[in-house]
């Protein structure tokens, strides 16, 4: 498929550890198109985070090929093709919220006036207007994670990589942020890769759900969602939603023996 944002073919990654090699990824074939919202779901050790880190050029594959925007992940990283949101907000504690959002802009050499404009725009996008001068510790966990999303959006990369961004938050905050994330996705038209542990979260957010299983880390199912792009929270009680969730659950169960 031409114009794919991410295209992986027979991708493998083996970590060398003291206990011998660990196959974090094995034979992963996956194509992610522009504007898709793709969730990666699976138990710990299934390689979902590793796959995201390979896209980001934070890990090097040991087999197969992968392209990001048609280039190698390294070239894509150097072209600042993606914004990365980590499990923790990873805000720099000595910077205020606006200075944290400014960090990538400073590094990329964007002018002060342009910085101010983009900070204003991205903080508005994540509903943090008014918190510019606060330090991270003065914000709740959910607000901190929103600030870190703003930071990833600030330099306008078309691809957003999110590694369990809401994993540490409580369910109520998580529901709220999921809704906001969908709005943000609709407004920015970005391609989003989203790692999660939560089946409802994956089904609610995604246009495509990649089910993975461990030992070796591999893709066991790719589900194209039939849900409309417009998704109120209530959609989670619809039969269609439950059917997709059921298929995800079946995929997870098939790929993973819980006895070992």
């Amino acid at each position: 498929m031409t114009g794919a944002v991410v295209a992986a073919s027979r991708l493998g990654l083996t970590f060398r550890t003291n206990d011998g090699p660990v196959e974090a990824l094995s034979n992963v074939d996956l194509t992610i198109g522009k504007g898709e919202f793709v969730s990666f779901i699976g138990p710990s050790g299934c390689g979902k985070t590793t796959f995201l880190r390979v896209i980001a050029d934070l890990e090097q594959p040991t087999a197969g090929t992968i392209t990001v925007n048609g280039m190698s992940p390294e070239m894509a990283r150097k072209a600042r093709a993606y914004g990365y949101v980590f499990q923790a907000a990873a805000l720099y504690p000595w910077r205020t919220i606006e200075r944290n959002v400014a960090l990538p802009l400073e590094i990329m050499g964007i002018s002060k006036s342009e910085q101010a404009e983009r900070i204003r725009r991205t903080l508005d996008l994540v509903n943090l207007t008014g918190f510019e001068k606060k330090y991270p510790w003065q914000l709740s966990g959910g607000m901190q994670q929103r600030a870190s999303i703003a930071r990833a959006l600030a330099f306008d990369a078309d691809l957003l990589l999110m590694d369990e961004p809401f994993g540490a938050l409580d369910e109520i905050v998580r529901d709220h942020l999921n809704e906001q994330l969908l709005v943000l996705w609709a407004r920015t038209q970005k391609t989003i890769c989203f790692v999660t542990h939560s089946i409802p979260e994956a089904v609610y957010l995604s246009t495509k759900i990649v089910v993975m299983s461990p030992r070796p880390g591999r893709v066991t199912d790719v589900i194209e969602s039939t849900l409309p792009r417009e998704r109120p929270l209530e959609i989670r009680e619809s039969p269609e939603f439950l059917a997709i969730a059921h298929r995800v659950r079946e995929g997870l169960r098939a790929g993973h023996s819980y006895d070992d």
């Binding site: 980001a56 050029d57 990283r77 993606y82 914004g83 990365y84 923790a88 990873a90 960090l103």
Partner: peptide
């Protein structure tokens, strides 16, 4: 994580 962040930029 903070170092990785710098690398992504």
């Amino acid at each position: 994580m903070h170092l990785d962040l710098m690398r992504t930029y």
